[in-house]
């Protein structure tokens, strides 16, 4: 799914973005557990999480995740924003809950990282 499609479907606010909105994102991973991200995710994925903290960005950087979405309109602090800019991770905020955000993306064909 294209990044611009993810932004549109989630009515997301773009906080940081250094990639082309036409970029193709292959998989999705939704969790608040960072170890689950490291265990189950694939590279070139979007992470949907309620953990609007630096840890989500650091973990995503390690796991090659390109796009991070914070759910329920949670606003990150400036260090988190700065880190995502530095790590060239696209950071989005969606007003939707994790369940609804996942549903919207799933409905349009985005799938969970294969285990």
């Amino acid at each position: 799914m294209r990044l611009k499609e993810i932004i549109r479907l989630l009515d997301a606010v773009v906080i940081t973005n250094s990639r082309d909105s036409e970029a193709e994102i292959e998989w999705a991973c939704a969790t608040d557990l960072m170890s689950d991200v490291l265990y189950y995710s694939r590279g070139n994925s979007v992470l949907i999480t309620g953990l609007a903290k630096q840890q989500a960005i650091r973990t995503s950087d390690i796991a090659d995740i390109k796009v991070v979405v914070f759910t329920r309109g949670k606003e990150p602090d400036t260090q988190t924003i700065e880190l995502s800019r530095k790590k060239k991770i696209t950071l989005l905020i969606t007003p939707y809950s994790m369940f609804t955000a996942c549903g919207k993306l799933y409905e349009k064909g985005l799938r969970c990282c294969p285990e």
Partner: peptide, 15 residues
């Protein structure tokens, strides 16, 4: 609360 401690660390290193 910081998103850690889910008991996946050692299994993930092994994986």
């Amino acid at each position: 609360e910081m998103g850690w401690g889910a008991g996946m660390g050692l299994p993930n290193m092994k994986k």
